[in-house]
C-alpha cells in the first residue's frame, strides 16, 4: 500500500536536492569573486560600512563615477570595520569611504594623535600595498565626548578636563569598544583624575537611543560622531578636546589600483565639496527626513554641480 507513495517521496527528495543546489549556488555566488576577476576590469566596486552616513557618501561616489562614464558595482552595508577590513586589505573593493583617524587606529592601534594632515600622512604609509588614499574632505565625522546641554550648564563644562568639576556619579554609555579605545574612561581618569561610576553599553553607534539615554539622564557622557544630526538642535554638546585625545576623522576615499586618474579626479572633486556642514545636512536628511541614500546623493550632486 505504500509503494504508490514512494514515487512522491523520491520526487520530493529530488526537488529538495535540486532546490538546495540552486539556492546554495545563488547564495554562495560571492559577488566579490566575480568583481575582482579580470573580466570585469572596467567595473569599480564601491563598498560602504553598515552605517547610514557612510552609505550616503558611498552612494555619492558611485553616482559621480557613473556620471563620469564608469560602471559601478555597489556593495554597501557590508558590516563594521572589523568585518570588511580584511576584504579591503585583500583588494576586493576598489573604492571605500573611510575616516582617517579611525582607520589609522584600526591598522596601527598605537598611532599617535595629531592634526588632520599628520593623520592623513600617517595613514598613507600605514595602508597595505595596492591601496592608496585620494584627497581628504574637510568634513570630519570624529569621535567626541558628549554631554547633554543641561548637564554641561549645571557644572559649567566646556572641555573634557572640566568633567572633574562634576560632583554626581558619571555613567558612561556607548558602543562596547569604547571601553578599549585609547581615549577610554580609564584614560580620562589617568589624565584628568575624573572618576566614573560605570559603563552602559548601547550598541547603536551614538544613534537616537544613545541620545535619548543622555537626555533622560540614564547616562551622563557618551561618544557621538561630530557630524551627527543630533547636534543640530543644541540639546547635546561635544566637549572640547584641547589635548587631541581624539584623532581627526576626515572622510577620505581609500582606493585600489583599478581606480585610474579620471576616476580619481571625480572623487577628488567630491571630497573638495564635502565640508563639515554638508555632511551634517546630508545626515539630517537621512535621519530626520528619512530619505533614501540614493535621493540624497542625487540631490546633492546636482546642487554642488558635480
Amino acid at each position: 500500500m505504500f509503494t504508490a507513495n514512494r514515487g512522491r517521496l523520491a520526487l520530493f527528495g529530488a526537488v529538495a536536492v535540486g532546490a538546495v543546489v540552486a539556492l546554495a549556488g545563488c547564495a554562495t555566488g560571492d559577488p566579490l569573486a566575480t568583481g575582482s576577476g579580470d573580466s570585469a576590469s572596467e567595473t569599480l566596486i564601491v563598498g560602504s560600512q553598515d552605517y547610514y552616513s557612510n552609505e550616503i557618501i558611498a552612494e555619492i561616489y558611485s553616482q559621480a563615477l557613473e556620471d563620469g562614464g564608469y560602471t559601478v558595482d555597489r556593495q554597501f552595508r557590508i558590516g563594521q570595520r572589523e568585518v570588511y577590513l580584511p576584504d579591503i586589505e585583500a583588494g576586493g573593493i576598489d573604492v571605500f569611504p573611510e575616516y582617517t583617524g579611525s582607520l589609522l587606529q584600526a591598522l596601527e592601534p598605537d598611532a599617535a594623535a595629531g592634526t588632520a594632515d599628520d593623520v592623513y600622512t600617517a595613514l598613507e604609509s600605514a595602508l597595505p600595498d595596492g591601496l592608496s588614499l585620494l584627497d581628504r574632505a574637510d568634513a570630519s565625522d570624529q569621535n567626541s565626548w558628549t554631554v547633554s546641554k543641561a548637564f554641561a550648564e549645571q557644572y559649567g563644562l566646556t572641555d573634557i578636563a572640566s568633567l572633574a568639576n562634576v560632583t554626581e556619579p558619571i555613567t558612561v554609555g556607548g558602543n562596547s569598544e569604547l571601553e578599549e579605545r585609547p581615549y577610554n574612561p580609564e584614560a580620562l581618569t589617568a589624565k584628568y583624575g575624573i572618576e566614573f561610576a560605570g559603563f552602559t553599553p548601547i550598541e547603536d553607534g551614538g544613534g537616537p537611543l544613545t541620545v535619548k539615554a543622555l537626555l533622560d539622564g540614564d547616562i551622563q557622557i557618551t561618544n557621538i560622531y561630530t557630524a551627527s544630526p543630533a547636534f543640530a538642535d543644541g540639546s547635546i554638546v561635544a566637549l572640547d578636546d584641547p589635548d587631541n585625545l581624539f584623532l581627526p576623522d576626515n572622510v577620505v576615499p581609500v582606493v585600489s589600483d583599478k581606480v585610474d586618474d579620471g576616476a580619481a579626479d571625480i572623487l577628488n572633486a567630491v571630497s573638495a565639496a564635502l565640508t563639515e556642514d554638508v555632511l551634517v545636512t546630508l545626515n539630517a536628511r537621512s535621519s530626520n527626513d528619512q530619505e533614501s541614500a540614493d535621493k540624497i546623493a542625487t540631490d546633492w550632486l546636482a546642487e554642488a554641480n558635480l
Binding site: 553598515d50 552605517y51 547610514y52 552595508r77 557590508i78 558590516g79 563594521q80 568585518v83 570588511y84 547603536d204 553607534g205 544613534g207 537616537p208 537611543l209 537621512s286 535621519s287 528619512q290
Partner: peptide, 22 residues
Amino acid sequence: AVIGVQSLGSLFTDGFQRGIQA
C-alpha cells in the same frame, strides 16, 4: 545583519541607527 550579511535584519540595524521606527 549585525555581521554585515544583508537580510530583513538590515532594516533593524538601519532603522536603529537612524531612529526610524517604521
